[in-house]
């Protein structure tokens, strides 16, 4: 029975260590900067419009086809007396979060750095009663960036860290 005694000493030593439970809904662990929840559209604070021009790059690259993008002529373009240099701008944008598999490809293909993965807890705690509520429209997608709630992390693809390269 020495082996059983050894097992019991092992469990006792764990008993005396502090528990490792994270008290989840009360205490949220700090998410790393690179955390990937669901894609969000970023907001150009200087010109006060989304970065997205509706170029369909992400829509085409999405492996699960969860995006729908429509573009329009930018009413705020310089040619019509506005302040923006974007000739075209996003008109309607839907992302079906229930379909999204969070592969990060939309972020990587975007030429304008207009889309980023939500790296806050708001992107993870998204349970709803109806899956239709997970289809996000343009307004829902841009709110968080517009109000500055997220600090986006756009990956620098295929490049070594500056610190490690030096």
């Amino acid at each position: 029975m020495r082996g059983i005694a050894k097992s019991m000493m092992t469990t006792l030593s764990v008993f005396l260590r502090p528990p490792v439970t994270r008290d989840y809904p009360n205490v949220h662990k700090a998410l790393p900067e690179r955390d990937r929840a669901f894609p969000l559209l970023l907001w150009d604070q200087e010109i006060d419009e989304p970065f997205c021009t509706g170029c369909h790059a992400c829509e085409r690259a999405c492996p699960v086809e969860c995006m729908t993008v429509l573009m329009k002529d930018n009413p705020n373009h310089k040619s019509v007396g506005g302040t923006s240099s974007r000739r075209k701008i996003i008109d309607k944008f839907w992302i079906d979060y229930a379909r999204c598999m969070r592969c990060n490809i939309c972020v990587e293909v975007c030429n304008f750095d207009a889309i980023a993965m939500n790296n806050t807890w708001s992107g993870h705690e998204m349970s709803v009663h109806d899956r239709k509520d997970l289809v996000m429209d343009l307004q829902q997608l841009t709110t968080q960036s517009h109000s500055g709630q997220i600090k986006e992390w756009v990956p620098v693809l295929g490049k070594a860290n500056e610190e490690s390269a030096s």
Partner: peptide, 21 residues
């Protein structure tokens, strides 16, 4: 998660190397 951003579905290795450092 700190490296790739996700906990199970990493999508971190790429043909040729790694997605990011």
């Amino acid at each position: 998660e700190e490296i790739s951003g996700d906990r199970m579905m990493y999508a971190y290795l790429r043909p040729g190397g790694l997605a990011w450092d």
